[in-house]
Design a protein around this nucleic acid. Structure first.
Lengths: 131, 131
DNA sequence: CTCGTAATGGGATTCATTTTCATATAGCCT
DNA sequence: AGGCTATATGAAAATGAATCCCATTACGAG
């Protein structure tokens, strides 16, 4: 995260690291309060942007269009299967898609091709819980 | 679309069919005005929802999170490569991804797995126009 | 320690989308 | 053709995430 390491950014980093799943900025803001380290909402957004820019976060959008953030695993996986019911997320091995996206990009005459891949479903636990 | 075929819904359908690329609800609303068939914004949103529910539209989100709609091609393609610069879209042959998503879903213990795949880039025309 | 610069925060703002509710109308029934 | 009613419409207000503004604070280099 390039800039100064302030009390607030440290807290954002710490709380975020404690989440194994996707969190919204708003939720993170609340959790920071709960953790006794109040951080302004603007600051939360700014910290998330910075982390996103430096590739330390993965971002998805939920069905309402809200952005959800999650620290990127050390192994570099960037695509997930997310439970629409409980929100639990599981990184995916997406080599196949990665290669496909690259090929399509190359064949298309487009440059700077980027891709978004998201899978969602209902996990076994949730299927059992609410049939 | 299920419900009554009103003047407004007919117009939404018609103008939408005339767009070969993704359009936002707001943009569609303006185009309807321009076409001399004023339709309330709420009605535009309602019509789009109805069409989405019945699978007649494909939806993506632009980088701002705004929803963009496009009539689904007859051949059933549902994934696109979109120019971030001019917005032109091109349907993709996504069998590879389709199969991958299916396999991941099956192996994961998740049910009702859905997937989103979007590619974006800068098309040849735009690359030439603004280097 | 001192200072300049970057960061903070809270309130205001933006803007897409949704809701509300009074009014209009599609389209079935006779 | 006329009536009737569930459905659709639209203007305005509400919602809510994300961004902007700007006076104040505090990191950290020197």
């Amino acid at each position: 995260m390039g800039g100064r390491l302030t009390r607030q950014r440290a807290a954002v980093l710490r709380v975020l690291a404690g989440c194994q799943d996707f969190v919204s900025a708003q939720e993170l803001h609340v959790r920071l309060d709960a953790a006794g380290v109040p951080v302004g909402l603007s600051t939360v957004y700014r910290a998330l942007h910075a982390l996103e820019r430096t590739g330390q976060l993965d971002v998805v959008r939920d069905e309402a269009g809200e952005r959800l953030y999650r620290p990127r695993p050390a192994d570099g996986h960037r695509h997930y299967l997310i439970c629409r019911c409980c929100g639990r997320s599981r990184p995916l091995d997406s080599d196949v898609v990665e290669r496909w996206a690259e090929r399509v990009g190359a064949e298309s005459g487009f440059s700077a091709v980027e891709h978004t891949v998201e899978l969602s479903g209902v996990c076994a636990r949730c299927t059992g819980a609410r049939p």
